Simulated scan of single mutants.
Amino acid sequence: MKTDELVSLLAAGEVAVPRRMLPSRLALATAAGLLASIALMLGLLGIRSDLPQAAMDPMFWVKIGFAGLLIVAGLLATWRLGRPGIKLGRLPPSTTALPVLLLWLLALASLSQATPSQRVTLLLGETWSSCAFLIALLAAPLLASTLWAMRGMAPTRLRLAGASAGLFSGSLAALVYSLHCPEMTAPFIALWYLLGVAIPTTLGAWLGPRLLHW
């Protein structure tokens, strides 16, 4: 086909992107990144040996619920910002702020009932020095695959799009990491899990203008 014919064909609108291509691309990227993140967690860290017993503790489900709500927010933002001309809207910011606010309130309530020496333990736990780093590490394959998916979706607000990919990736990584993490206090989760999610979110915002332009 000659160049002039191709231009005419595109101008006529006869080349359409299948409706299911974009969600399929994002689903494929998410599945690949999640499998890689799980494999990385299993290879480096392993699942906590007392997981069945830990699942009986309500705080375990607080961790799961916190990560899950952030995943929903990140997915909605990624889906909307990945397409040109689509505004972010109000829902993703509200779904991001709500779980963070609720967790902070729970953490403050826990700290207010503890002695000064107990507060340090509640905040630092035993793994404070590695928690955020490990969440960010587990988010790396997810961020790479999500940015790949978004590049094919033709985003226009590149910094926000990259940040949403980072939020989605970091939240999924936090969910994966929770299967290993022994920490079960609200102050610890409110501080270090949130920092772990913030790292890939910030990295995504930095990478967005560099990798998502088209």
Rank of each mutant, 00 (worst) to 15 (best):
W104M: 11
L103M: 11
W128H: 11
T96P: 04
A107G: 10
P92R: 00
Q118N: 05
R90V: 10
P92G: 03
R119S: 14
A109M: 13
A114R: 10
A109Y: 13
L124E: 04
V120H: 06
S110K: 07
L102G: 14
L102P: 12
P93H: 08
T121E: 12
W104Y: 01
A109H: 15
L111N: 04
R119H: 02
W104D: 00
L122C: 11
Q113I: 02
Q118E: 15
Q113G: 11
P92I: 01
V120W: 11
A97F: 09
L122G: 08
W104C: 07
E126A: 14
P93M: 03
G125E: 00
R90D: 02
V120P: 00
P116H: 06
L124G: 00
T127E: 13
S112T: 07
P92E: 02
A97W: 10
T121R: 04
L123P: 12
L123M: 15
G125Q: 01
W104H: 00
L91Y: 08
S117H: 10
L103K: 08
V100L: 14
A107K: 10
W128L: 00
P116N: 05
L103W: 08
L124W: 07
A114K: 08
S110Y: 04
S94Y: 13
A97D: 04
V100K: 11
A107E: 07
Q113F: 02
L105S: 10
P92S: 03
L106V: 06
L105T: 08
T127V: 12
L108F: 14
L91E: 08
Q118W: 02
L124Q: 05
G125C: 00
P93V: 05
A114D: 15
W128A: 14
T95L: 15
L102E: 08
R90E: 01
E126H: 13
L101F: 10
V120Y: 05
L123W: 04
L124H: 04
